[in-house]
Amino acid sequence: MSNQEKSSGLPYPVKLVVGAVLMFGGFWLSQNAEQYLPFQHGLAEKGIPLDLGITIAVIGVFLILFPVINSFYLKPLADAINERTHALESTFGEAESLRAEMTKMKSDYEQRLVATEAEARAQIQAQIKEAQDLRQSLMADANAKADELVKRAQQEIEAEKQRVLGELRSSVVTLTLQASEKILGENMDSDKNRRLVTEFIDKVEVPS
C-alpha cells in the first residue's frame, strides 16, 4: 500500500521501474513462498487461497498498466472526444452565425423592398399629381381661350352691330331726306336738315 502511495506522484520511468521491481519481486516471493510466507499454507488449508507474492506482483503490474493504458488508449480517446465536441460546438456556432447573417440579410432585403415599394408609390403619386396639375392647367387654359374667343366674338358682333346700325341710320337719314326731297321738290340736303332727321331718329330709336 505504501509503495503505491509513494510512487503515485513519481515521474513516468520511475513508476515503470518500481512496478517492474514489484512485479518480479512478487513473483520471486511467490515462488519461494514456503520459505518466506509459511502462514499461507495454513490459510489455504482453511480455504483462503491467498498468495501475497502474487498480490505484490499484481500491484507492480497495475503500476505499469495505469500509465501505459492511459497513454495507449484513454488519452487519445479523450482527446478525440474533446476534439469532436469542440468541432461540433464550432459547427453549431458557425451555423448559428450563418443563420444570424441570413436573418440580417433577409431583414435588409425586406427593408429595401419596403423602401422600394414606398418610393414607387411616391413616384406614382407624384406622377398622378403632376398629371392632375397638368390637366387642371390645360383645362384652365382652354377655358380662358374659349372665354377669350367668346368675348372677341361678342365684341365683333357688337362692333358689326354698331357698324350696321350706323349704316342703317345713315341710310335711313339719306332715304328720309331723299323721300322728303321728292315730296318737297327741293333740295333739302343740308347740314341742318340732316341734323334734324338724326335727332328725330335718335328720339324714335328704341333704346337697345
Partner: peptide, 25 residues
Amino acid sequence: SPTASLSFNLGMALISIGYVQFEGM
C-alpha cells in the same frame, strides 16, 4: 481467470484503497 484468484483481487483492492488513502492525505 485472474479475477477468480483472491491474490489478484487483493492486489487490485490494495491499489484502490491505497490510492484512496493517498488522495485523502
